[in-house]
Amino acid sequence: MNRIADLGGTEGWGRVKTPTADEPVFAQEWESRAFALALLSMGRISGRNLDAFRHALERLGPDDYFKDGYYGRWLNAAELMLVESAILAPGAVEARTRRLRGEDVAEPAAPEPNKPDYAPTAAGSLRTVDEPPAFAVGEVVRARDTHPTGHTKLSSYLRGHRGVIEMVQPAALLPDTHALFLGENPQHVYTVSFDSRELWGADAEPFEVSAELYESYLEPVS
């Protein structure tokens, strides 16, 4: 399944926006509030499990993901996680919003929180792995042609394609399981370099794309 956030190489988005030097950090005040609320709520739920937050973003519907913009989708994902952790009742935000604009609607009672049973083994995402890296710099590998239905950082445009290990990065916890509170499963991480013609066909303009891929995303090419 290609999730809503898996945009690499997709068509239909029009021209890129032209950068402006004096762009404010937050275009509107609500964006700054949504930014802070999303990060602080994440701490309340999961001790900043960023992968779980990204997994929530990827489960939003297209309107909730795209129409409200970047910080809007942060707010929507935070609300989803707060409802799933039973910190907020379903419909609580909608009811309060309607009351704020003068509608006489009842608000649901606050539920009994049911947060994920989760504690990170260390701060951040970097971890140590006892086994040596399976792949070495310069080795040719293939990104596995898998189709996971949950969270993953293996973008669909890379799946099945051959690349070369460019750098071995510090080992890190695996987003695929960490996002679901199913364990850290630390793995070696590699910067893998792909030729554009391998990804996009012989007629593509020549360039390289690199991505950081976890060891289980890769297989050797013999």
């Binding site: 509030r33 913009g69 935070a78 309060r96």
Partner: peptide, 10 residues
């Protein structure tokens, strides 16, 4: 519902 108002509500 407007996102500004939903942010305020949350």
């Amino acid at each position: 519902l407007p996102i500004e108002l939903r942010t305020e509500a949350l």
